[in-house]
Design a binder for these strands. Sequence first.
RNA 1: GCGUCGGUGGUAGAGCGGUCAAUUACAACAGACUGUAAAUCUGUCGCCUUCGGGCUACGAAGGUUCAAAUCCUUCCCGGCGCA
Length: 403
Amino acid sequence: MLKFSIHKKLDGTMARAGEIETKNGVIKTPAFVVVGTKATVKSMTAEQIRSLNAQVVLANTYHLYLQPGADIVDQAGGFGKFMDWHGPTMTDSGGFQAFSLGAAFGNSVSKVATSDVGVSDISAVSGQLAKVTDEGVMFKSHLDGSKHLFTPESSMEAQWKLGADMIFAFDECTSPTAPYEYQKKSLARTYDWAKRSLARHNELDQNKEQSLFAVIQGGRFQDLREEAARSLGALAQDSDGFDGFGIGGSFTKDDIGTAVGWVNALLPEDKPRHLLGIGEPLDLFNAVEAGCDLFDCIAPTRMARHGSLHTADGRLNIKNSRFTTDFTPIEASCQCYTCLHHTRAYLAHLFRADEMTAATLASIHNLHFILRLVEKIRESILDDTFHTYKKEFLARYHPPKTS
RNA sequence: GCGUCGGUGGUAGAGCGGUCAAUUACAACAGACUGUAAAUCUGUCGCCUUCGGGCUACGAAGGUUCAAAUCCUUCCCGGCGCA
């Protein structure tokens, strides 16, 4: 059972700094959750994750269910122990894969859309690996094509075996191109699934070892988001209710702050709120201001593997030819292992030579950058310097040009 | 020296009379990536362009043809075989 306490609220915003106590340790919030989908943060050892002062690792139910199987992870003592991570843990329910292997499969849609995103027909396209029904999601394994039905119940059962401290209700992550009617229908389904998840979770977890977060959907529509926040928020009142909330689904880059704010304005204040899958610097500032406590995102590690490195001035592409003879660190002021020991030229060489260490060193840097950023955001809330910190950061940080 | 096979864009290597500025791969140059189908994907990759096209190109020089990277001749260079 998790204990959440708020230490400080920032006047004029919904931002707050606090702590979540889990049986595996304390998380100081706001916190960035490192993603280790398959019980590994890609290219990194657990020791390296610890050295970054990461607080929580999140794994994925769909992936671990398929490989190596939830039973094996269970035998290992849970995914944290399995991967030698002994701090707090989370698992995602597999709901995101309803989107990434469903509506998004083979398309270029991402969960964060550009503002000119259009509504499109969401009827199933051939080749998709996920099909959503009221019962659950039928997945065709991306590994071997075998079929697997995920339901709220089976997701809870798998997550129980995976053994994380915090788990998510099974939800449908919708496409940003889905029309209002579909979002509305899907939202009702996600609500039903949340209740089914909660019921099965309470059966499995008699001793309250895991904490269950409900997921708020509703796309980019205010009425749907608010309806979800109200209805799911109401299921967090008693001790058998939800322990926290995930805010999921699709946003437009521009309205991450606002849409998240609609939700958090209505959610119970005393439960942690996890913004699912968001992790770019500007989005983090906006989401904290809108009342979020936790974030997970694959971006820092994926970007790293692809050669895109965070700096206070924005991202740089280490593969650009100009870095081949740049014998300075990625960032002179950065205290990460990579910056303390290596140059841009060395990184550029490792990437060009296709060496695995490139991914590791780049991931260390990007995770350090984001973890440190959220830490600093937390400190700035506690000492009332959030607004100046944000302003200074934004003045210097140039986001990648959109469009 | 004789014979034989070959010389194609940064590299390897297709093409073997028109649909070839030339398949493909790699390299190079840039871009994308937000609950990981992702050590991935996309674009560019002879020169010029008002994006219609124009120009120069397949070892070199000639030639045949309406038309040649593709056929012929000579030369240069390389592999192999025989002397």
